Computed example of a mutant assay.
Amino acid sequence: MADIITIEGGIEIPQSDVISVFSDTAKLQPYIDRVRDEVSTEKIDLTTDKSRKAIGSRAHKVSKIKTALTKIGKDSVADLKKQVLEVNAGVKYAEEKLSQLRDETRKPLTDWEKEKERLEEIEHQKEEARIQAIQDEINNIRNFAVLAGNESIEHIAGLIEALDTIDPSEGFDEFTQDALVAIAETKGELAQAMQAKITERQQAEQQAQLQKEREENEKLRRELAELKANAAASKAPPEATINQTESRADLQATQQNVDNLQRQIDQDKQCLAHADGQAYHQGKKELDENQARLDRMKSTLPKLNILAGKKPPAVINQASVTVEFTEYQKGYIDALEQYAHWKDGVMYVGTGGKTLTEAVSEFIASNKTVA
């Protein structure tokens, strides 16, 4: 015979039916209705103390039945809850062990992937460093044209020549075209700056020459006025003396203009050697004009010598001019230092493996003076 669970009120539930009853409210409802019938048989009377106590007793009875009935339901699943906890623990154990086994199985591949990522990151950093180094060199090229404003013509010429030593086909890789553009644009800017300096120098020298000529002419005018006054006082014919004095003044002024213009032409030739583009064409035009002017001046010297009472020279000697390129060398060396970069504790110039010290020494040895 099946085990029967009995609680207060004569309620009986077969042990085998407990889970089925509590799993279906339709099966549970008859037990609840039985309790209701048992406590609802008496008529409610609140006029007497006995009746009121009877109502309270019936409510207490319902409470006791509730506690007993729900305990049956809870007890019926206690073992099931324990089983669920045990199953959950087993599931967790299986998950942990199999995850560990999975990771151990995959570890060689995981280690290989991590090493691959590490090596790729190293290569990526090397590539970024390589590109940055090239960009820095291109920026250094463009920095040649960043001038303070007080550089001499020779200094700028040295910068231009230093640019000409940079070989854009070496070390710039895929940025060779960028290097070519940077060199061309920087040389153009430096050529413009040098042309502006040449024009500024020419204007200053012309103003100084004009002032000097005005002062000398004023001195000659005073001398002529004095000669005329002395000739009038002595009643001697002054014309020959006066004319000769005037011719000597013309000779002196013309010779001085020839010397000044010759120096200017020598400087223009030097600067023109480093110019290109518009600056070269403008400089060449001015050089040709000055040369033609110099030739015209020289052609008048023999006649002026005769008028001044001097024997005309058979040959007009021109002393060779030796120009010391102190500023030029300084500009070139500054450019080398600006373009140089550090590598392993040594400063190198460009990408050819030449140290800064070697480059400076070679330049000084080959550019001591320019005749």
Rank of each mutant, 00 (worst) to 15 (best):
D259M: 12
D259I: 05
N260F: 10
N260P: 01
N260S: 07
L261T: 08
L261M: 09
Q262I: 03
Q262F: 08
R263H: 15
R263T: 09
Q264R: 05
I265W: 01
D266A: 14
Q267H: 04
Q267T: 10
D268G: 08
Q270K: 10
C271F: 13
C271A: 15
C271T: 06
A273M: 04
A273N: 02
A275S: 08
A275E: 11
D276V: 03
D276L: 01
D276K: 01
D276S: 13
D276H: 05
G277L: 10
Q278G: 11
Y280I: 04
H281F: 14
H281E: 12
K285Y: 12
K285C: 06
L287N: 02
L287T: 03
D288R: 01
D288A: 15
D288H: 04
N290M: 07
Q291T: 15
Q291D: 09
Q291G: 11
Q291A: 14
R293W: 07
L294G: 02
R296C: 08
R296L: 15
M297C: 09
M297N: 02
M297L: 15
K298I: 13
K298D: 06
S299H: 06
L301M: 05
L301N: 03
P302F: 10
K303L: 14
N305E: 12
L307W: 07
L307T: 00
A308R: 00
K311L: 10
P313V: 01
P313T: 11
P313Q: 10
V315P: 00
I316H: 08
I316P: 02
Q318D: 13
A319K: 07
V323A: 11
